[in-house]
Structure formats: structure tokens, C-alpha cells
Design a protein around this nucleic acid. Sequence first.
DNA 1: CGGGGTATTGATTAACATCAAGGATCGTGG
DNA 2: CCACGATCCTTGATGTTAATCAATACCCCG
Lengths: 243, 243
Amino acid sequence: MPGTTCKICPLRKRELFTDFTKDELEFMAWFKTGELRVDAGTTILMEGSNSPQLFTVLEGMGTRYKTLENGKRQVINFVFPGDFLGLQAGIMGEMKHSIDATTEMTLCVFRRNDIWEVFKTHPERAYDLTWIAAVEEHFLGETIASLGQRDATQRIAWALIRIFERLDAVGMSTGHKVPLHFRQQDLADALGLSLVHTNKTLQALRAMGLIEWQDGTLNLKKPQELAELAMVDLERPQKRPLM
Amino acid sequence: MPGTTCKICPLRKRELFTDFTKDELEFMAWFKTGELRVDAGTTILMEGSNSPQLFTVLEGMGTRYKTLENGKRQVINFVFPGDFLGLQAGIMGEMKHSIDATTEMTLCVFRRNDIWEVFKTHPERAYDLTWIAAVEEHFLGETIASLGQRDATQRIAWALIRIFERLDAVGMSTGHKVPLHFRQQDLADALGLSLVHTNKTLQALRAMGLIEWQDGTLNLKKPQELAELAMVDLERPQKRPLM
DNA sequence: CGGGGTATTGATTAACATCAAGGATCGTGG
DNA sequence: CCACGATCCTTGATGTTAATCAATACCCCG
């Protein structure tokens, strides 16, 4: 079984992503070397490693994270379908963070060595690659602003909104609900909060009737109020390229 | 006066930066449309704007920052010679943060519209552009880890070390000293600390004999101990491309 | 039934923000 | 030449947020 060919890729057809030309489609089918299915808990890319493979997430969720010398873990970002993994290793030579699968995941696999081929023969796809890097940079900048300037309640509200938006954009929402199988510890590690405080803050948001999060489902009951609390604008998802 | 032509660009010759081929050099001389000198305090790029110009910093320092709805400012990163400004606007259409000149600055100017030309005709330069984006992404990830997991003392130690390393890499150090005309408020806004606490923490580091920072000069008196305190490895600067 | 992982809760403590002044330096206009 | 603001740095006192510590509860699974 050849798995999802690019042609029938369900992700690609989402409105969120820019269209492929016929030529691009063919090229991507060539660029793609296979599909990978990994169990929850698997480390997909490891900090310091020089993986020969790059990935696009087709299904499932994960975390990008760094581990500090004292053993503390910082989750840099959550990983959702449509995300491209391994660009750093592909370009700079080694990963600067690790990526773990939180749920079972399906990944589209590319050869690192073919990256140069992308730049040489398909400039529009190379441009998209840079686009993806720029989008990630933007998101990390927003994260920095959250960690630096928002208090615990605002941080959590902000994070849940952004998570919802990202999942919603790839068609994983049902009303105000999205599946979310991360632990509270993951969120805490992403926001620089302790587990205990994260828990209490989530309780508070729940008590306010703004959210529910249990059994792997996040429910933003009052997105508007939550956004106000978090001091964020609900963003209309911007079209972006998919690798 | 045509200003610094790429050919004699003093930055380019630094060991830090990867070499230009003769063809690349010619191309860059074409890509470059001029030079810009701005006063301290000038806003070079504004959040939400769609600047027709992109820049490489030749001289001077600045800050990338976001302003939140409540008026708080988060400095995302400091800007030093060799940095490329405006990639987000160039690729995604608009800047997601602002950039101010802290000192007088000299900038190399490019036309945003020519970016596509880079990808189409000079894939190796396009690759470098992506490299630059990946490096920035890496640094922002490290910043997130600092804000999330380090306490005030460690954060400041970390920041001063990274600042020193970056300036050192572009040849601006004299022994353990580098020029640094930022205010304590800038550092505080970069690290998510209050001005008062930043000040007191700097005092403490000074009292320990680890640093000095006055009259626009930062002096890392004991880099080794400072690095230990910050829980960072002193990094040998990795070669990287210059735009 | 026991054990590992996760969520929850209350009590205590430490880190940092906030508030409030004061001092140093510098440029400007009277 | 001096007074005035303006800007930045410094310091002490007080308040609040969130970390840490320590249990307990829950659930699924073997």
C-alpha cells in the first residue's frame, strides 16, 4: 500500500492551504519518499541529531521541546497536522530541539538531501519553505510575548485559543470543540508554569464557564470572552503553504 | 557616494559568514539598492506594515518588539550587525513585529519585490535566506526556554552571554567588553522582568564580580562562571550566511 | 488487587511586581 | 550660567503571584 499519495492528500485540499499547481503536485509526489506511522510517545526528531529525513504531519499531535541542563523541559510549540518537521536539521545541519509524538501520528517523509533539489528546480516550493519558516518565527515571537507579558490566566487562555484556531484551521473542530490529548503538564511546560498552578488556573477558567477540557476534548465555551481575557484578537487563519 | 559596495563590505569578510562566490557577489550588488542611515530612535519597520524594503544591518543596534493591547512591550530580540530585517513582510506580506533603531544605524537596502528574483535565479541565495530564518527560529526557541524555565538571575546571565557572543562574532568585542547602548528597560522588556527587578539583579551580578555594564559598555568579567550560573554552554559561533 | 500515570487540593514559601522616592546626567531655554 | 525637564538608574518598603511541598483521589491496566 503506497499510503496517501499527494494527489489525494486530504490535508492539501483544505482551504487553509495554498493550491498546488499540477507541476508542484508531481514534484511533491517525487519529493515524498514514503509515510511513517509512529506510536504515541515516540521521539521523532532529537535535539542535536542530524536526521536524514524531514516530515510533514498528516495526522496526530506532538510537541517540540528543549530539555535544559537542570532537566527542566520547555515545550516550544505543539505540533499539529500540516506542520513541517526538521527544517532546522535540513538547513542548519542539526536539530535544535526534539519532537515527540503525543498521540499516534502519521507522517509524510522526505529526504533531507533532496532539499537542495527543491531550491534548485522548484523555486516556488523553496519560497513556500521559507514561508513556513517565517510563519513559525512569527508564532514563536507571539509565544515570547505571552511568556514575557501575560500572567498565568492570560497565558493559558491565549494558548487554548491558539491551539483551537490551529486545529480548527485544519478541520479538526466540531463546533467549539477540538480533540486535545496533551497532559496539563505539557501545557505547563509550554507556558513556563508549574503543574499545580496550571491546574488551578484551568479550574478557575472552568469555574468561569469559559472552557472545558476533559477526556481529551477541549471546549471553548465562550471564545469571545476568553479572547478578551487573553488580550488577543481572534485571528482569521491566513492561507499558508503545505509541504 | 555609492556607500559600501558589496565588494568591499567589511561585514562579509568576517570569518563568521560563509563566503560569497563571485557570481553571488555580483548578484548581491544588483539586489542591493542602496544604503540607509537612520538616527537612534527611528522605527525601521512597523508591525502590520508592508514595507517595500528589506534590510541588512551594517552598523548599529536595535530592537525587534511587539506591543500588546495593554501597552506592554515585549522585546523579541535585539538587532545587531549582520541581521536581516523584514523577511516576514517580504514573505508573508506584513511585519508581525516592529523594529526600532536603538543607536544610529546603517542599513543595506533591498527591494521586497526582488525577493522572488532571488528564489528564481539564485537558489543558493534563497537557501541562505531560509537558513537565516532557521537560525532566527532557533534563537527564538532558546529565548522561549529562557523565559519559561530560568529565573531572573539566570535569564539575565543568559541574555548577556548571548548578546556578547553575537557581538563578538561580528568583531565588536575588545577582550571581554562589547558596546551596548540599550537601557535596562530594554533588557527587562526582553526578559519579561520588571525594570526594578532587572536593576537589582544586575546589581547582584555586579556584586558577584561577574559583570559590569555602564556607559554603554558591557564587560563579562568571568564568562565561565556566568555561563555556569545561566546554565548555558558557551557556543562557538556557527558559520552562517549574510544577506 | 496493586501500581503507574494523571488530576486535584490545601498549606507554606519564595520570587518577583508594584509603589514610591531620590539621585545622577544632560540638553535646553531664559 | 543656572533653572527646568526629561530620561535613566537606584533603592527601600510592601503586596501578589506563582512555585514548592505534601497529600489524596482517580482511572486504567495487567
